[in-house]
Amino acid sequence: MKNITLYNADRTDHLIWPSDFQEVSASSTALSVFTDFRQHEPAIIDADTKALDAEQIMRRSHQRLKLVLNGQGEFVGILSLEDLSDHELIKKVANGHNRNELTVTDMMQRRDRLKVLDYHDLEVMTVAEVLDLLKQYGDEHCLVVEREQHEIRGIISAREIARLLNIPLSISRPPKFAEVYLAAIRR
């Protein structure tokens, strides 16, 4: 047996992360900021989870987005912390829902309303182009699909890109038609 010594952890020792060693710039390939589900398990949540529980789960796990699966394990939408904000909960309650009975299904962004990016387009894009695209659509996250195989391949996060580039993030969702209409009739 080899003579190996264990040392005490030093106060100056700190955790390192893979991103500490990534050299990402605006001109880097977009694949450098892509979370590939072939290499990383997607963060998922059950569609029937109570909305208030989902918020706690996401905050404890430091996840801002989860993919929503129904009882059959099929992808039905995405849920972000923004979807669970007090503002969104109050809107649901104002429409007659009981706050304590709201589920992930009530709060999520439904699959049929999501915009996705094709993996082959991602292969030829730069980080700056992806960030511009996300700003254009007002989305902090974008699913990436392989359309020929009908596979959800992964996800891109504007927040992660901003963190890697060490730039401020300012993405706002475009107003919905109903919001524009209400603002116009109030004038």
Rank of each mutant, 00 (worst) to 15 (best):
A47L: 00
G138V: 05
E146V: 06
I167Q: 14
V180H: 07
L84Q: 09
H150F: 14
I156M: 08
V104W: 07
E23V: 13
S172P: 05
Q22M: 15
G138D: 14
H62S: 13
D121V: 07
A94I: 03
S172E: 15
T29V: 12
M108A: 07
V144M: 06
E146W: 04
D112L: 10
N3H: 05
S32E: 02
E82T: 09
L117D: 02
E88C: 03
D48K: 12
G73F: 08
R111E: 01
L114Q: 01
R113K: 11
F21K: 04
I161E: 00
V127I: 00
D121A: 11
E55S: 14
R186K: 13
Q136H: 13
I16D: 11
L133G: 01
L182V: 03
D13Q: 15
E160A: 11
L143C: 06
Y181K: 14
Q63N: 03
V104D: 10
N3V: 09
V104T: 15
A47Y: 06
A51V: 11
A43D: 11
E151D: 12
T12I: 08
D48H: 15
R11S: 12
S157G: 02
A158I: 10
R187K: 15
T126M: 09
Q109V: 01
E151L: 11
L131H: 01
T35S: 06
I171D: 12
Y7C: 09
D48E: 15
A9M: 13
L114V: 06
I155T: 10
L133M: 15
R111P: 05
Q136S: 13
P175E: 07
R111H: 03
M107E: 04
H150P: 06
Q72D: 12
V93W: 02
K2L: 10
V116Q: 12
V130Q: 03
Y137I: 08
S61F: 05
L67R: 03
R64K: 12
R64D: 12
R147C: 02
Q72I: 01
N100S: 13
H141L: 10
A54H: 08
G138K: 09
R147S: 06
L133W: 04
R38M: 15
Y119E: 14
E82N: 11
H62W: 07
M108H: 04
I152T: 14
K92G: 04
T105R: 04
N98H: 04
N8I: 06
L164P: 07
V180S: 07
R163P: 08
L131K: 08
A94C: 06
F21C: 09
E148H: 06
V24T: 10
R64M: 01
E140Y: 11
G138T: 00
Q63I: 13
I57S: 04
I155W: 08
N100M: 14
A51K: 06
N98Q: 06
A162M: 07
D46A: 12
H14I: 11
E148S: 07
N8F: 04
V76M: 08
V145R: 08
S172K: 14
V68Q: 04
V145N: 06
N98D: 14
N166L: 04
R163Q: 14
K91Q: 08
V93T: 12
S27Y: 13
V130N: 05
M1S: 14
H87L: 10
D53F: 09
R186S: 13
S170F: 12
